[in-house]
Design a protein around this nucleic acid. Structure first.
Lengths: 157, 157
DNA sequence: TTGTGTGCAAACGGTTTGCATCTCC
DNA sequence: GGAGATGCAAACCGTTTGCACACAA
């Protein structure tokens, strides 16, 4: 039951991505399916880096090169399917831009890396207001709050 | 007159930094003075990268190595004198944390790199509220709005 | 005088790229 | 069949580090 639903949902996602790619003369290939599947199966509030993707694919017995991963990520960002988020300084993270995704922001623990997503209409309004006042065309905004989570506060004692 | 005031202000800044450094057993050296001077003389809303600093110092006939620049920047961030801001993906930018500096955010043109600073109490409140709700200890927050400025919109026609 | 700071050159690490080969449409 | 995609290995580029020398306190 469950697994049938999951498989169905993955197949749906493949079809959506395929038609989107075909519009642009691009192709849905094996590696691209694997990457998409990882994001679809990733619970909310989690984000994947190129390294995460490489690790997950290879530990499942698959094989994929970093070049392919980076090229696929860039392509999906360009198509508006994914978003690059700045959570840590060392590397870039990516998240799926589901059509229903509201603008959300991130609360990050600088010690353990735990991430919470949250929405805040005040922040959304502020970004709209600020772009309007300066005549900018809004593209994206990132609001990232850095702090220390409870667990890390306690373990520091 | 003007230049006397500027020199006085730079000397003041040196004294402030020197005593702050000495508290920690650190020293105010030639390269550190040069870097501080650049930030003091940089108009509001401008931010400097390691490359900017290197360029400015060397075109003035000075000499400084990247190692020294990076080490000085990290030190000043650790001391709470400077802040690292994420304006572009490729490199890190730094700004002086003047004592009177209110929390401010950035509106960046993704094409030409123009940056506007702005304050918004709603955003500040949102960061406080979110850390509170999750039991986090607030460390810093970055709100960066990406868009296309008027000039770039017009030149794209 | 001595421990801190500097410059150099080499290393680092995430990301990008050129090219021969493969594969989806 | 042919344009687009992949994997490999090497290049890239901002940043970091080890080490011998220099200098502020």
């Amino acid at each position: 039951m469950e697994s049938n639903n999951l498989e169905a949902s993955l197949a749906d996602q493949h079809d959506i991505l395929r038609s989107r790619l075909n519009q642009e003369g691009l192709r849905l290939t094996g590696p691209r399916k694997k990457i998409l599947d990882l994001f679809v199966m990733t619970p909310d509030g989690e984000h994947l880096s190129a390294e995460d993707i490489h690790y997950q694919v290879t530990t499942k017995g698959g094989k994929i090169s970093y070049s392919t991963i980076y090229r696929a990520l860039h392509m999906m960002v360009d198509l508006g399917i994914m978003r690059e988020v700045e959570l840590a300084e060392e590397r870039k993270y990516y998240e799926l831009k589901t059509s229903l995704a509201k603008q959300h922001h991130h609360l990050v623990c600088v010690q353990c890396g735990e991430v919470h997503e949250f929405e805040d209409h005040r922040v959304t309004k502020a970004s709209r207001q600020e772009t309007l006042e300066h005549g900018f065309l809004l593209r994206d905004c990132q609001f990232t709050v850095y702090g220390i989570c409870q667990t890390c506060q306690l373990s520091a004692l």
